[in-house]
Design a protein around this nucleic acid. Sequence first.
RNA 1: GCGCCCGUAGCUCAAUUGGAUAGAGCGACAGACUUCGAAUCUGUAGGCUGGGAGUUCGAGCCUCUCCGGGCGCACCA
Length: 639
Amino acid sequence: MIDYLKTLRQEVINRIPAFGEITFSFEYPPNPAFGDLSIAACFDMAKRQKRKPREVALEMAALLQGLPMVRKVDIAGGGYINFHLDRPAFLRYLLTHEKSIARQADEKIIVEHTNINPNKAAHVGHLRNAVLGDTLVRLLRHQGYEVEAQNYIDDTGVQVADVVCAFQQIRKMTIEEVKAIPDPFDYYCWDLYADFSGRLAADSALQALREQTLQLIEHGGNPTSELAHLIATRIVTAHLATMRRLGVRYNLLAWEGDILHRRFWTTLFSLLKEKNAIQLATEGKNAGCWIMELPDLPEAEKVIVRSSGVVTYVGKDIAYQMWKFGLLGLDFHYAPWGHDDEGRIIWTTAREPHDDHPPFGRASRVYNVIDVRQSYLQKVVSKGLLALGFTSACENSIHFSYEMVALTQQCARELGYDLSHEDEGRPFVEVSGRKGLGVKADDLLNALERQAHSEVAGRNPQFDESVLRDIARSVAGGALRYFMLKFGRSKVLAFDFREALNFDGETGPYLQYSAVRARNIFSKLREREGVDASVISEIIQDAGSYEYLNEATDIWELILTAAKVDEIAALSIVSLELSLFAKHSYTLAQKFNAFYHKHAILHETDQSKKRLRLLAAHYLSSTMQTALNLMGIELPTRM
RNA sequence: GCGCCCGUAGCUCAAUUGGAUAGAGCGACAGACUUCGAAUCUGUAGGCUGGGAGUUCGAGCCUCUCCGGGCGCACCA
């Protein structure tokens, strides 16, 4: 439909050149009886000409007769122009038109997401990030862009140092002993990290040891950094296994240690000094540090290099961001890490060169999926690019920000956390790895799978255990992914088990169920009547199949809803509001269910009705499958 | 203190970015399986869109102001 609207828009401007100056777009009338499309441009035009909107609309509507696939143009309300489409012609167009989503020329996009510190298990907050990021990747690819999904791994930061220090100082364990800890290793570290963080605040000797640990890790080539590497690798393996359960895919794991090792930072440091983008502070609280001045941000200066000479995270991140745009003149080494759920290689940055790898980086646009609390730092990164004169890279660095995930009071109580007096007075409780406070991603997925398993088994006692498990996995994933997508990104997600484990109403399983039913119509058709795909394509080609659509207004509305899917996908990307896409997919499923309930298809005896309903079901089924796929929600074999 | 975000039905959220009668789900109540699958469908109840002022053909959305809440403003990331 998005292609058709482009053509129609151009045709309208050809007829009425004045509309070219007004930024008008097609809207959808609230009441379908008004028409299928509408434009409100006459209100603007009337204002310019100091006339009545309705008068202008009447005049303009007269110029818009005989547009392609438009049956009638009329006016309504204060000055809307409404378009009524030629239903049979339009549905035929939808079913026969080649998807013309062309590859966007030379534009490569990088989406960085997940980015979990490799020192503990993933929790619900990380799931929101990964699902948003992975869905954005899928939507962009659907639009024809070349997209590289990257997962940044901060293996040399304080958080890993905490766990390393905890193993060495608290647990007194050797690297061999750590290696021997059984899975789930990420769960083990979750508790250890919380334990260590609790002790750290009150123990200055421990703080000093942790500082030493950090320096050893950054320096590399010693037993401590080896232990850090072991821990980070085991944790990343666990994170990727968790994400794989949800169909989240990556092309590249970018390790911070490699940014240091490949001298990205030292190169950037010289460049920053050369361009006077940073200054050595000689007085004040930041004396001895290299700082970046940020006159229009709340904190007027940001430390890039500490007085100890150690670079901060922001410094490394500016280097990484520059590399993404191909502006650093340096590259990583790469090696294969593993495979995603579709069997494609996941690459990792590496210490040693590897013979044959695809090109990475050199994007023209970059999305960083990071929660809203890091807005300030993301601004510093893009200001850094600007200070170096990379205007275009700065403009094309997009912070995809979203609000944090918290726990409802009730959820925190169910998990048995002792809340501080302060926390008890709040509307929700912030998830904190440091405090060990949160719902672990795998625990949540396990709970969803258990629930889905019992629902499926209850309905289908004849299924084998292996089938049950596969369906349960797929339903659990669908429930979780939809749950993470349905909320607007600027809304704090207060997590609650009752809501997340619900499979009725506006949920992933509802969408899956609808799509499964739609598909089953065609398998039943094959079984009972021997009708296969070739018969469907005959019906599509036959103009007579569409005639009944003029009377079937409810089916027509259903088809229009489906036709909007690609346009909503584009809108979701522009606004970064992926909930738009989720909601629209839900509306589609809802309308399909109503249609399914109201009209018989296989049992319909009137052939013209039956043919049209088959066409509608066919179009709906394929559109719902596309929509699910874009959200990373699997279509279960049965439910 | 400065900056950003949120406030819509009992609860959780929408509202085509300034458009036509503010919509969904959950929960509640009343119905529908001998049928292409009831994880479904149909109906009922539920609203001064936090308060006030302004902008205009038109405001849940924009401006100002007040109220309530959240998050930032490290030589952590």
